[in-house]
């Protein structure tokens, strides 16, 4: 059945989905590069690049945070195997975004950058969000999960909630007047974080029950949440 295949794709299909997702995540980069090359980004292309990479960081962070609840509600466990790639792409766009600020906005004037970070709250939270993303990207591979141990890895990676809040705040604080877009991102994030509250309580109850020996934990092998 088709439905069965979607719920549990074969290894070959899983590989195809991964490649497709990889290309899809790369598409914004390709479109931006093509836009610059063809002079299609309007009179201020640098602004479009800076803003575009920032927006894709935010979108990919939110998409990454959608994986766990989506997996739980649909029962498609293979979705979990896409989560790392999505998270790493969020980091990749954050890197491009920070790079465009350091280079195209400040031209590596470290004094001015330092003052900016200290003086401008929206830059402060943006840089903080990036700094917090670095250890997550660095510990994203399987070897690091094993080295840290599931529980410690999980605790570390829960900082993605804070990162997403900082990222939305960064956007909110920089817009001049019309806050429609930041409000949309903030609302989506609020829903995604809200969905985790009952899940978390449910998880705790199970853990406590398991500790008392009245139930067995039969959760998935990969670290749950984020």
């Amino acid at each position: 059945m088709w439905a069965g295949r979607v719920a549990k794709p074969s290894a070959a299909w899983l590989a195809r989905i991964k490649v497709a997702l990889f290309l899809a995540c790369l598409l914004p980069t390709v479109l931006l590069a093509l836009g610059v090359y063809q002079d299609r980004l309007g009179p201020n292309p640098i602004e479009v690049v800076t803003r575009g990479t920032g927006e894709w960081t935010l979108r990919l962070l939110l998409i990454t945070l959608t994986v766990t609840p989506l997996c739980r509600s649909s029962g498609w466990k293979w979705l979990m195997r896409m989560r790392r790639m999505l998270g790493l792409f969020a980091f990749y766009y954050a890197l491009l975004h920070l790079g465009s600020y350091l280079w195209l906005d400040q031209f590596f004037d470290w004094g001015a950058i330092g003052r900016d970070i200290l003086k401008r709250p929206f830059i402060t939270v943006g840089v903080a969000a990036f700094m917090l993303l670095v250890p997550l990207a660095a510990t994203s591979n399987q070897a690091m999960v094993r080295r840290l141990g599931g529980r410690r890895w999980l605790r570390l990676h829960r900082s993605v909630y804070l990162i997403a809040i900082l990222a939305v705040t960064h956007f909110w604080w920089l817009v001049k007047r019309d806050i429609t877009e930041p409000v949309v991102y903030a609302s989506i994030l609020a829903v995604l974080l809200g969905m985790r509250l009952p899940l978390h309580r449910w998880g705790q109850a199970r853990t406590q029950a398991a500790a008392k020996g009245r139930a067995r934990v039969t959760g998935p092998a990969w670290p749950r949440n984020p």
Partner: peptide, 13 residues
């Protein structure tokens, strides 16, 4: 200028 800059901006030209 815009064509010359593309290699740097996109890092993939």
């Amino acid at each position: 200028a815009s064509v010359g800059g593309v290699g740097g901006v996109s890092g993939m030209s």
